[in-house]
Simulated scan of single mutants.
Amino acid sequence: MDETIPLSALQHYSYCPRQCALIHQEQTFAENIFTLRGQRVHERVDEPDTRCEKGVRIEQALPLFCDRLGLSGKADIVEFSPDGTPRPVEYKHGPRRKKEHDDIQVAAQILCLEEMFGRQVPEGVVFHHSSRRRRLVPITPELRAKVERLAEEVRGMLECGRLPPPATDAALCRGCSLKDACQPEMVGADAAIEEAAESLFEPENY
């Protein structure tokens, strides 16, 4: 594979393919309250560090890669149990809650760690900063398959160079920092106008 796909692209794509393309294809990014909160949370794990707590070795900002899928990135935290089994810990702002795109990001980190260390990694963790609570993410066959499928889809999207259509979920758009750059309402209106124009002169069926 010529170029690796950032692990973060899988999370962005699972949230919204158009958001992923704007960030990783168009190099477009903007801040909002949610991205700023996320940056504050990640400040404490952005610098590489190694320490030991209660017999567990903790690697901070550990580089990750998976040659098989062409993925690369960085883990916030990787905990190594006494037998050497790694477990990624992804930091997120906000209270403890399940989000599929967070689980996909953790699962992608697990696939990287399995290739790097040559052993099975049964689970990862999402640490929710606001509630200071952990949520275990078991690596199921379905989650593995989804990561592999998304890696292929992201690669295809970036290679074709076309922007996907906006999301149809208004709640996703409201929370997205790229809403102004994406202009989902305008793009949706343009599509509706184009569809109406194509059928304007079609004879009516009686």
Rank of each mutant, 00 (worst) to 15 (best):
E202N: 07
V41K: 06
C182V: 05
A30F: 15
M116A: 00
M157H: 04
Y15P: 03
P95L: 09
Y13T: 11
E47L: 12
R18Q: 11
V126E: 15
A145R: 11
F65L: 02
G70I: 03
E59C: 08
V137H: 01
E195S: 12
P17H: 03
K98E: 14
E26V: 15
E159M: 02
L36Y: 13
A167R: 13
V154D: 02
L200M: 12
E185W: 11
P48F: 01
A108R: 02
V78N: 03
A151P: 02
P203M: 04
H24T: 12
L64Q: 00
C112A: 01
F34G: 07
K179G: 02
L111S: 01
T28Y: 10
A191D: 03
Q183N: 06
G38R: 06
E47T: 13
S8E: 01
I77S: 05
E159P: 00
F29R: 10
Q25M: 14
V187Y: 09
V56H: 10
R149C: 08
F201L: 12
H101W: 12
Q27S: 12
R97P: 09
Q105N: 11
Y13H: 12
P165S: 10
E152T: 09
L178A: 07
E153F: 08
L136V: 04
V45Y: 05
C66K: 01
R162P: 01
K179W: 14
R132Q: 14
D180F: 08
A170R: 08
D169K: 12
Q11H: 07
C173T: 06
I77M: 08
R132D: 11
K179R: 15
Y91F: 09
D46H: 12
V41D: 04
T4G: 09
L136Y: 10
I104S: 03
S199K: 10
E142T: 01
L36T: 15
R144K: 07
M1G: 14
S14K: 10
V187I: 13
Q19N: 05
V121P: 02
A61W: 00
V187K: 15
P203A: 10
K146F: 09
I77V: 11
P88N: 07
E79R: 13
S131A: 07
D49M: 07
V126T: 04
E100Q: 14
P166S: 09
A192L: 11
S81K: 06
R119V: 07
I77G: 04
S131H: 12
I58M: 08
E194K: 12
T140G: 01
L136R: 03
R44E: 13
E79T: 04
L69Q: 00
P122D: 03
S131G: 11
D169R: 11
A21C: 07
L111P: 02
T140M: 02
